[in-house]
């Protein structure tokens, strides 16, 4: 659960005291896990500011941001990176152009982990995983891992950034435990107890299972290996399903705005597919009202730093672009009258 509570942000561009522009005016917003939210609004309505405040690249003037009950307002941008995958409007921003596809992916894989100055940055195991993921993305990049990202098209770069933002980075059990204690929303002690109990009981089951497999003389050696591997994978999956809290939130800041319509559509479709497959909590800012209506299960409309519309489910399905435009005009008129 991601929550913004009474967040206000003012910009003072010229430095003059009376020239303050309010970007966000006392905004409160709660996003449930797994929700795909689309955000629309005119220029300067505060939609991008909201995303920047969530990701930590901007600090709110007042108000707090909580993630699963923990106050993360004071965390720096890079400290929050483990919990937010981001795709920017500018395709150049999300990837390092002078580095190869492989290097970019390795860096993304390491998101939220310690960057060891001794451990070699590449591994064959990762490479295999990247190739599989790239194939799933259908970009034709799986044979071009050593190519520099700088020579790729905007659409390809955006898709690559999307992969980097959504990649499951398989945190170690140690990391999962740490994050679960910090972010589960439970009391520290309870969270620790729950993790340790669950982990040790599951581990005991696994060990028992492996022992029976090993003792069973009717199974051939290769089959035994296979079965043990499957049992371990199953254990891993169960633990992750319950305790892996990282990387569940995707922040998309008009990530298709700089692309041509055809590529934009492709990237959007891809986004939708990935979000749905991974059940990711997603916030997508867009200029395009049609996209905002087509995708996602909740729609939020910003206007001059306020939320003027927040609909989900059936209510959202009923809306049309005309309705949105009408609301937009009304809000404009109201603001002018004031």
């Amino acid at each position: 659960m991601l929550e913004l509570k009474n967040v206000t942000k003012k910009f003072n561009l010229t430095g003059a005291l009376d020239d303050e522009r309010i970007a966000l005016d006392n905004i409160s917003l709660a996003i449930s896990p797994g929700e795909f939210v689309t955000i629309i609004g005119g220029n300067g309505s505060g939609k991008s500011t909201t995303l920047n405040i969530i990701s930590g690249s901007l600090k709110p003037d007042s108000g707090i941001i909580t993630l699963n009950g923990r106050d993360i307002t004071k965390l720096k941008e890079y400290q929050r990176a483990a919990y937010f995958g981001r795709v920017f409007q500018d395709p150049m921003k999300g990837t390092a152009g002078d580095m190869s596809v492989l290097e970019n992916l390795e860096i993304a894989y390491n998101r939220g982990r310690r960057h060891s100055p001794i451990k070699w940055g590449f591994s064959e195991k990762h490479k295999e995983y990247f190739i599989n993921e790239l194939k799933r993305f259908d970009l034709g990049l799986e044979d071009r891992l050593s190519q520099k990202v700088g020579v790729m098209s905007g659409g390809q770069r955006q898709a690559l950034t999307l992969l980097m933002a959504t990649m499951r980075n398989n945190p170690t059990y140690q990391m999962m435990r740490r994050d679960y204690i910090l972010f589960s929303g439970l009391k520290e002690e309870d969270a620790r107890k729950e993790f340790d109990q669950e982990f040790s009981s599951k581990k005991a089951i696994l060990d028992e299972h492996i022992r029976t497999i090993k003792l069973d003389s009717s199974i051939s050696k290769n089959d035994k290996k296979e079965m043990i591997r499957n049992a371990k994978d199953e254990f891993d999956r169960q633990i992750r399903e319950k305790f892996d809290l990282t990387k569940q939130i995707l922040l998309l800041d008009e990530h298709t705005a700089a692309l041509d319509p055809k590529t934009a559509k492709k990237v959007l479709e891809l986004t939708n597919k990935v979000v749905r497959e991974n059940k990711m909590t997603t916030l997508m800012v867009t200029h395009n009202m049609k996209d905002a209506l087509t995708y996602g299960d909740r729609l939020i409309m910003f206007h001059l730093g306020h939320i003027i519309l927040d609909v989900k489910g059936k209510e959202k399905e009923k809306l049309s672009v005309e309705d949105l435009l009408k609301m937009f005009d009304e809000a404009d008129k109201k603001a002018e009258n004031e």
Partner: peptide, 9 residues
Amino acid sequence: NMAKAQGIN
């Protein structure tokens, strides 16, 4: 920008 978004100090 990318480095920060990838959790690098």
